[in-house]
Design a protein around this nucleic acid. Structure first.
Length: 579
RNA sequence: UGGGGCGUCGCCAAGUGGUAAGGCACUGGAUUUUGAUUCCAGCAUUCGCAGGUUCGAAUCCUGCCGCCCCAGCCA
């Protein structure tokens, strides 16, 4: 179980409620939460917020957290998602105490529905979907009662049993709660409890022709698992009266008959009286988070699948190289509130940089090579230099970096006509080569078109790394790779998928599709030092002065290296230049 | 003309009647063989607005204003 909380984590309102409940001895002091995804898509950063919250609250309070698949709509669910969700939750660093499916409780839901019918609180309605919509009224006008609202209990029971037996066509009838067609809260205008859908279910196969609705299934599932705090997002706020209504009518803790099916299957837990608490989702700038839009990006080939490194899905972030710890730290930093918000992507980036700065070994790579020849070195000069793997962590040891007369340096590290403030290599200027010494640019070699082809430099022997002269100050330090030893590499530079902070905003008549960033992925060929090429797939490192990278988990192989850029280094110089 | 929420620095977010935490971003400056990291300093006389209660209000009351969610047999 991941546990990397600050010494005194911020006391957001949910932590406060839980603390107060424990202090008051509510639920016997127990804390049980659940993460209840519907298996109809891949998990994304928004889910991660809920996962961190639910598993975190349980862990902090010595409680339990269940993983529950909310699989009540076979039309949209798929086992592929059931597997990916488990993988992603574990990757994020959490382990559930109990794994359940809402479909494990289908028998309980059914028994509960019959109970509601017997209590005169539910009825079978023959109205069509369209008629139901008409009868429901509008936001400002009350609804009308269905002509079937006052059927007798026996007739309702008979009809409902025949619904279950599969006697009726899809959509021909529903079971509805009898509450209040004039309620200001539309969720209380006789909401549907069951609908007929003759579909094969990913978990129960063809056992059921009827499936329960969310409002009914969710609260009952929570109660049956002994959930104490049912955390969900803001849009469910006005469903809470319904959540409470069903549980009060069913009274699961005192009606053993309802949970009898679970005893038989060994799934029984002491039923409880859960409390629903709502918090705001967390949106992030320059991305979209709705399942619908993510699915569209995948299906329409706008990205390379759910795990495309530009996707905000957990599988995408994993392939991009983000660490689970960074994602956990991110949500902890953001906190929990009831305010709709769009979080600056920079906060997430700061979290990975923080994690990777401390842990990632340093390597050198050149992405846009320019040849630099050290003319005062013999043509066959080759030596191995010892480089620390990490500037602040000696435990990471050292590596050997080959050095020779001809090197690759970054093309942008040389300017023939330097702009003010540029302190890298210029004609007749000096610069330090990382771990080598100070070189002076003596000649700039150009081709017929005037393009710079290579630089001829001299190395000041007194300034070699380790010598007293190395103390000398020069304005810049460049990274490099020995041309003779460089390993050609594919490098994928990723950037934000959208070029506007809020792609969901359609007030200008454009949609998220109009704002895809054409430069969200740039693939180029570069060179890395031998130690970098030896990385195992999914190994992360920092390419000095460039950013943090990960050897692509799928495509990288030492003979044919492939690196993904996770995030750039903070770059105050580039920022200034951009202004 | 319905119901439910939310408004504290550019972005998040503490604060729960005693005189505005923190993070990201930003701006200075120190250290630095990564223009990175680290370090130090600065960054809301003011809490959507207007009244009121109080010795004292971001916190309590009243009235406005703004934003979000709800009319699936989706979750």
């Amino acid at each position: 179980m991941a546990n990397d909380l600050p010494a005194s984590p911020p006391q957001h309102f949910i932590r406060q409620i839980v603390a107060a409940d424990r202090a008051a001895g509510k639920h016997g002091g127990a804390v049980v939460t659940r993460f209840p995804p519907e298996p109809n898509g891949y998990l994304h950063l928004g889910h991660a917020k809920s996962i961190c919250l639910n598993f975190g609250i349980a862990a902090e309070n010595g409680g339990r957290c269940h993983l529950r698949f909310d699989d009540t709509n076979p039309a949209r669910e798929d086992p592929e998602y059931v597997q990916s969700i488990q993988d992603d939750v574990r990757w994020l660093g959490f382990e559930w105490d109990t794994l359940r499916h809402a479909s494990d409780y289908f028998e309980v839901f059914y028994l509960g529905a019959e109970k509601l019918i017997r209590m005169g609180l539910a009825y079978v309605d023959d109205l069509s979907a369209e008629q139901v919509r008409e009868y429901r009224g509008t936001l400002t006008r009350p609804g009308r009662e269905s002509p079937f609202r006052h059927r007798g209990i026996e007739e309702n029971l008979d009809l409902f049993r025949r619904m279950r037996a599969g006697e009726f066509a899809d959509g021909s009838r529903t079971l509805r709660a009898r509450i209040d067609m004039a309620a200001g809260n539309i969720n209380l205008r006789d909401p549907a409890i069951y609908r007929i859908r003759k579909l094969t279910h990913q978990n129960t196969g063809d056992a059921w022709p009827i499936y329960p609705m969310y409002d009914y299934a969710h609260c009952v599932s929570d109660a049956v698992e002994g959930i104490t705090h049912s955390l969900c997002t803001l849009e469910f706020e006005d469903h809470r009266p319904l959540y409470d209504w069903f549980l009060q009518q069913l009274d699961l803790p005192r009606d053993a008959a309802l949970t009898a099916p679970l005893r038989e299957r060994g799934l029984w837990l002491p039923p409880g009286t859960p409390q629903q608490i709502e918090f705001a989702r967390g949106n992030i700038s320059y991305t979209v988070m709705s399942k619908r839009k993510l699915l569209a990006l995948v299906q329409d080939g706008l990205v390379d699948g759910w795990d495309d490194p530009r996707m905000p899905t957990l599988s995408g972030l994993r392939r991009r190289g983000y660490t689970p710890a960074a994602i956990r730290a991110f949500w902890e930093r953001i906190g929990i509130s009831k305010q709709n918000s769009v979080i600056d992507l920079g906060v997430l980036e700061a979290c990975v940089r923080e994690d990777l700065d401390a842990s990632a070994p340093r390597r050198m790579a050149v992405l846009d090579p320019l040849r630099l020849v050290i003319t005062n070195l013999p043509g066959d000069h080759t030596e191995m230099l010892a480089f620390a793997n990490h500037p602040k962590d000696d435990a990471q040891g050292t590596r050997a970096v080959p050095f020779s007369r001809e090197l690759w340096i970054e093309r942008e590290d040389f300017m023939e006509q330097p702009v003010k403030g540029f302190h890298r290599l210029v004609p007749d200027g000096e610069v330090r080569l990382r771990g080598v010494g100070i070189v002076r640019c003596q000649h700039v070699i150009k081709d017929a078109h005037g393009s710079v082809m290579e630089l001829h430099c001299t190395l000041d022997a007194e300034t070699r790394h380790g010598m007293a002269g190395a103390e000398r100050k020069v304005k810049g330090t460049l990274h490099w790779v020995s041309a003779a030893h460089a390993i050609a590499t594919e490098v994928r530079l990723y950037d934000r998928l959208f070029d506007v902070p809020d792609p969901d905003d359609e007030s200008d008549g454009k949609t998220y599709r109009d704002h895809l960033n054409p430069d969200s992925r740039r693939v180029l060929r570069g060179y890395v030092e031998p130690a970098a090429a030896r990385a195992a797939p999914a190994d992360r490192c920092q390419f000095e002065r460039l950013g943090y990278f990960i050897a692509d988990p799928r495509d990288h192989a030492p003979p044919r290296p492939v690196f993904n850029r996770i995030v750039t280094l903070r770059d105050t110089w580039a920022q200034r230049a951009a202004i």
